[in-house]
């Protein structure tokens, strides 16, 4: 989504600060968004953007928890709306006086401003835990383990070929067992990862926190 940007500022050689979210619109993109809203099409965001967005919602520059979020709408280069939401429940809406005489336009712009904020909020949470990775990992480990057993007991298995029939059965049983165990352990691993992002090894810089958030998204 090209018209949604995060406002970054490089304040030192190593530090980049995100000041908020900007919706940068022109006549053409406004019409497109109004149409998308009308047809209930949801804007698409890249994984990289969602990562930065989640990072902005959670953290401020100095590794503390975020305490306020800013959303600014600019139309044809001019700031029109700004919403500042504070963690403690204060919401400040600013509207540029120049837009007030143009009732149709401000109606459309405010509609899109709040709709885009809503779209961002809806994409904030991680997709529901699906555990897609569990199955391939369980199969991989089960195949490796069965392979090891085969190599270790190669001679016995070759002598008593009937035992070879047990290999697929043990492979299947191992996979099922591993899958079950991984599903049990996965939420704890997620928690550990989150803890590392918030206060562990992955919390040392915005880059490492983002790396942690990427792992979490893939998880």
């Amino acid at each position: 989504m090209d018209c949604i940007k995060l406002d970054y500022e490089q304040i030192s050689e190593t530090q980049i600060v995100c000041h908020g979210v900007s919706f940068v619109l022109n006549q053409e993109s406004l019409l497109e968004l109004l149409e998308a809203k009308e047809n209930q099409h949801h804007p698409k965001f890249t994984d990289g953007f969602l990562l930065d967005w989640r990072h902005y919602v959670l953290f401020q520059a100095n590794n503390d928890l975020q305490n306020g979020w800013s959303f600014t709408l600019t139309y044809e280069g001019q700031g029109i709306f700004r919403t500042l939401i504070s963690l403690d429940g204060d919401v400040l809406n600013q509207v540029c006086s120049d837009i007030l005489p143009h009732s149709t336009l401000y109606g459309q712009l405010s509609e899109i401003h709040y709709w885009l904020m809503q779209q961002l909020l809806e994409r904030l949470r991680w997709p529901r835990y699906r555990g897609r990775w569990v199955n391939p990992v369980a199969w991989g480990v089960a195949i490796a383990m069965t392979g090891c057993i085969f190599l270790l007991y190669f001679r016995t298995l070759m002598a008593q070929r009937l035992f070879l029939l047990l290999l697929p059965v043990s492979l299947w049983l191992l996979q099922r067992g591993l899958r079950y165990s991984l599903k049990l352990v996965a939420p704890y691993l997620q928690g550990i990862l989150l803890q590392q992002i918030l206060s562990g090894k992955l919390s040392s810089s915005p880059a490492s926190r983002k790396q942690g958030l990427t792992y979490l998204t893939k998880f």
Binding site: W69, I85, L87, L124, Y129, A186, P187, Y188, Q190, G191
Partner: peptide, 22 residues
């Protein structure tokens, strides 16, 4: 909007304490 942003943070911290988003 405020509720959405705040509950995201609360859930993250809560799940870190609980060791799991599940």
């Amino acid at each position: 909007q405020w509720r959405g942003l705040l509950s995201f943070i609360i859930d993250i911290i809560q799940s870190t304490i609980d060791r799991g988003m599940f």
